[in-house]
Structure formats: C-alpha cells, structure tokens
Amino acid sequence: MNAAIPRPRMSSLTDLQPPADGLLEDVLSGLSRSPKRIPSKYFYDHRGSELFEAITRQPEYYLTRVEQALLDARMPAIADAVGTGAHVVEYGSGSGRKTRQLLRGLRAPVAYTPVEISPTALEATTTGLMSTFPFIEMLPVCADFTRSVPLPRAKRPARRTLVFFPGSTLGNFTHDEAVDILTGMRHILGQDGRALIGIDLQKDPALIEAAYNDAAGVTAEFTLNLLVRLNRELGCDFDLAGFRHCARYVREQGRIETFLVSLRAQEVHVAGRAFRFGQDEAMRVEYSHKYSRGGFAALAAAAGLAVAEEWNDPKDWFGLRLLRPV
C-alpha cells in the first residue's frame, strides 16, 4: 500500500533566523538592566545543544526520562485524541528523541515542521527523521519560535495541526511571555488544532533543585558556555573563571532561577561598552517554572486555550497537556 503514496522529500528550508545583531542588542540591553540578565534562548549554540543533551542523561535530571516514559504510556490515548493526518509543528526540535516517539505513535501524520533557532540542531534533527519517516514530509523552519512564525504548507492536506512543545520549555518564560507564546500557538492551530505541551509539576523543592545542580557539573558547564558563546560571537571578554553557576528554587514564584554569579568585582567589555560586576552580583540567565494543575489551566485560558486532556506520570512529577482552542 505504501508504494502508492508519493514519497515526500524535504522541501526547501524556511530561513527566518533572527539577524546576528539581535544577539548584540539583547546582550547590551540585558547588561544595562538591574539585575543584569541574558535570555536563555542564547544557550543553544552547537556546544550548548550538546551539553543540554548531556544534562538530560544525568541521574538527577528526571524531566526527560519521566516525560519519555509518559509519552510511551499515553501514546494510544494521544493518538486517539489527535486523530489521523496531522501536520505536526514542534517548537524547538532538540535531539528529536521525543519527536520520534510522537511521530511513530500518531496515525499517518502528513508533515513535520520543526521550528528551531539553531541551524545545526535543525539540520541534524530533520536529516535523521527523514530516514526514519520517509513518508512524512519534512518542512523545517529556522526561526525564533517566540516570534510570529508562518506555517509552511504541506503537499498533502492535513486534517489538523498539532503543535508539540515538550520538555517543559514553556516554563523558561515569564507568565506574560508564556501567554504570548501560547497565543501565537493558538493562531497556528486555527479552529480545530491541538497543542501537546510538556510541563514540569510542583513537587519537593530538593528534588527540583538537584535536577539543576547535577553532581557531575554538566549544568554548570552548560550555563558557563553562554559566556563562551558571547566571547566568540561578540568579541566580549568574560572571564569564565570569574563566574559560577547558581540555580535555586524560589517557592513563592514556583520556579527555578538560574544565575551566573560574579566571584569578584570586575569589568566586562561588550562592543566598546564597559559593564561592571560587583562581587557576588548575580546575572539571571534562566527561569524554569513548575506548574500546578490549576495554574497551568489558567495560563492556557489567558491565551484562548483550554485543557482537553491531561496526563501525569504515576508520581505526579511531570505532565502532558493537550490543549484546544476555545
């Protein structure tokens, strides 16, 4: 039967990658604020992507293995809820491990569109998936998914759009930013689409903190690699030995806050401008929100979305939420 179906090949890459000066603008703006901050999206150069994959294999980092097990356990119910012939759109393609689980479990998806800011990660993921799923059209988009992204049109009509946003990546954004991302997602879905979102759930703070402070120091290296990237791409002079990784759970906000902390009073130069750091001054580089059931439902509602289905792992550590437009 498969021989009668035209074998799609990967269409041309849609390149909407932000201009290089966007990084400089964000860094200058962030270093000028109090407290200083740099957006977490800049973690993911080639080395940063490699280090993040290494983080997911650390024993303390429960998120990936629990989400993968949850996907396996609930895949039949997810396939029933999504239906046949979906165009799958993934925000941030990563390594593609969870993507394979989803595409393998869905019923005859017609196309897959990864939206990824890292060209190397995008190419690697798409190339690997093409050989595994030759009858799914690959329509990669190199772009920042936090901005408006037009959806490529598949050659075979899709019955429904499914946005896939795993890994609790939504938790890396503030409440307002998350609402904006979900609102943009709502526009992509149309009237009958669905979104499958992975969310890390509120639990013992010690368990959460350990996930972001692994004993092997991989997360610390990942965080400091941000400074390596800025030195390489912007000609900055951050001294890596002058900063340390710090991640702590803030119970009142329900989130991990990750910082690079200056170990001494020092001055850093960026594009001819000098920025002073005091000893023990913390520069924020990431949020990781942990959600309650009601808190996430309220967040989705603010973007015009409702929870259609919800699945948690047996320990209630991690959840999958299927959203529909209201």
Rank of each mutant, 00 (worst) to 15 (best):
residue 209 E to G: 07
residue 154 A to K: 04
residue 98 K to H: 08
residue 187 H to G: 15
residue 218 V to C: 05
residue 164 F to L: 11
residue 172 N to P: 04
residue 198 G to N: 02
residue 128 G to C: 00
residue 114 P to R: 07
residue 142 C to V: 08
residue 198 G to K: 00
residue 92 G to A: 14
residue 173 F to I: 10
residue 173 F to P: 03
residue 77 A to S: 14
residue 181 I to W: 03
residue 195 A to K: 00
residue 154 A to I: 02
residue 173 F to G: 04
residue 177 E to F: 08
residue 192 D to T: 12
residue 128 G to D: 00
residue 167 G to F: 07
residue 118 S to A: 15
residue 126 T to A: 15
residue 138 M to P: 02
residue 175 H to I: 13
residue 125 T to E: 12
residue 122 L to G: 05
residue 142 C to H: 11
residue 102 L to T: 06
residue 217 G to Y: 07
residue 199 I to P: 00
residue 130 M to W: 01
residue 218 V to R: 08
residue 214 D to A: 13
residue 126 T to H: 06
residue 184 G to W: 05
residue 139 L to F: 04
residue 185 M to C: 14
residue 164 F to G: 03
residue 181 I to M: 14
residue 131 S to R: 00
residue 126 T to V: 12
residue 73 A to C: 13
residue 119 P to E: 06
residue 143 A to Q: 08
residue 116 E to T: 14
residue 77 A to L: 14
residue 200 D to N: 10
residue 89 V to T: 07
residue 109 P to H: 01
residue 212 Y to L: 01
residue 178 A to P: 00
residue 181 I to F: 09
residue 76 P to Y: 09
residue 159 R to F: 09
residue 193 G to S: 08
residue 211 A to G: 09
residue 145 F to P: 05
residue 90 E to L: 07
residue 202 Q to S: 12
residue 89 V to M: 07
residue 167 G to C: 13
residue 161 T to H: 10
residue 101 Q to D: 14
residue 167 G to W: 00
residue 105 G to H: 05
residue 211 A to Q: 06
residue 117 I to W: 02
residue 181 I to N: 03
residue 202 Q to M: 11
residue 87 H to G: 06
residue 203 K to P: 06
residue 120 T to D: 14
residue 219 T to V: 13
residue 191 Q to V: 14
residue 106 L to I: 01
residue 105 G to K: 04
residue 204 D to A: 12
residue 110 V to P: 02
residue 131 S to D: 07
residue 160 R to F: 05
residue 132 T to H: 09
residue 209 E to D: 12
residue 101 Q to M: 12
residue 215 A to Q: 13
residue 77 A to F: 04
residue 199 I to T: 04
residue 208 I to T: 09
residue 130 M to G: 01
residue 78 I to L: 06
residue 216 A to D: 15
residue 124 A to Y: 06
residue 148 S to I: 11
residue 193 G to C: 06
residue 192 D to R: 15
residue 196 L to R: 03
residue 155 K to N: 11
residue 204 D to I: 02
residue 194 R to K: 10
residue 206 A to L: 13
